[in-house]
């Protein structure tokens, strides 16, 4: 048999299959919806980042403890990223934090934080720590290295002396860089390489579509129908980025926006952190009201 005969026979076999009806309209509908969801997701994350200012305003009353040698307690302004919140703030907890190799610094967060109901949904990872901070002082802890499993380590070391809350994804990055739909693995790797070699950037984390979907579920927890009909593949991949101290978020952001494959760059919550730790007491109603 010749190859042409084989091609002919394959074509005949294909022709014998019952025709398929496409559904172009649903394809366009889905794409329009995906674009809306994608934009809404990015906007929601940007708003959530900015709203940490509203979420957690409190008075820094200057009660910075006079620390002894070897203590890692610092004034709150010195904390550049909050990775874990520990509540309550007791001498025993302080001892654990001072002794822990995974803790870089920590600062006291005074109670009287008000968790705003407009900013903290039931599924927000910030809800539990901020609600705990309504009744006790706590510590905002910065990890020695980004991406470490500091919360798990502290939870183990603290045992029942205090509760530790992982807020690194919510409070711990400076910029989030979204790639355009359909970015190939090669393009993702080229962006990763550019970020990794950037002197203004100290740490990066890739957020896959599956990870983004987990975020999406939290952001839109109050809209189950939307979550149900959205697939991980509808969401953009992104990188969360920590900047080196002194680096400009705006300059870095503008630099990466110029890359063809980068769709958008939003400010992360940690850029608002100084306001979070230093701004005056919020007078809004609490989202932590008891049932």
């Amino acid at each position: 048999m010749q190859i042409d005969e084989l091609r002919g026979e394959l074509t005949t076999l294909a022709d014998e299959i019952e025709p398929f009806e496409g559904d172009l309209r649903s394809l366009h509908r889905r794409e329009r919806r995906r674009r809306i969801v994608r934009s809404a997701f990015v906007v929601a994350l940007a708003v959530a980042a900015a709203s940490t200012v509203v979420v957690a305003r409190h008075r820094d009353d200057g009660r910075v403890r006079v620390t002894g040698a070897g203590s890692k307690e610092v004034p709150s302004a010195q904390i550049t990223h909050v990775d874990v919140i520990v509540v309550p703030a007791t001498p025993a907890v302080r001892d654990v934090l001072d002794a822990s190799p995974v803790v870089r610094w920590y600062a006291r967060v005074a109670r009287s934080v008000r968790a705003s109901s407009t900013s903290l949904g039931p599924a927000s990872p910030l809800r539990a720590p901020f609600c705990a901070l309504e009744s006790s002082d706590g510590f905002a802890v910065q990890a020695m290295t980004g991406g470490s499993d500091i919360q798990q380590i502290l939870a183990r070391d603290l045992a029942d002396r205090a509760t530790s809350y992982d807020v690194s994804d919510s409070l711990g990055y400076d910029l989030r860089l979204f790639l355009k739909a359909g970015a190939s693995s090669t393009q993702v790797e080229s962006v990763r390489a550019a970020l990794a070699s950037d002197r203004d950037i100290s740490w990066i984390r890739f957020v896959s579509q599956a990870d983004a979907y987990e975020d999406f579920k939290k952001v839109f927890a109050d809209q189950p129908a939307l979550v149900e009909t959205t697939k991980p593949s509808d969401l953009p991949v992104s990188f969360t980025i920590d900047l080196e101290p002194g680096s400009s978020a705006q300059t870095t952001s503008e630099r990466y926006k110029k890359l063809g494959i980068v769709d958008s760059v939003i400010a992360g919550p940690s850029l608002f952190k100084p306001m979070f730790l230093l701004s005056p007491t919020d007078r809004t109603a609490s989202a932590c009201s008891k049932p």
Binding site: L10, L13, A14, D15, I17, P19, F20, G22, L24
Partner: peptide, 13 residues
């Protein structure tokens, strides 16, 4: 319109 049917049939084969 040109390729949907063709691709689907090919996948079946």
């Amino acid at each position: 319109a040109s390729f949907f049917d063709r691709v689907a049939r090919t996948l079946m084969l």
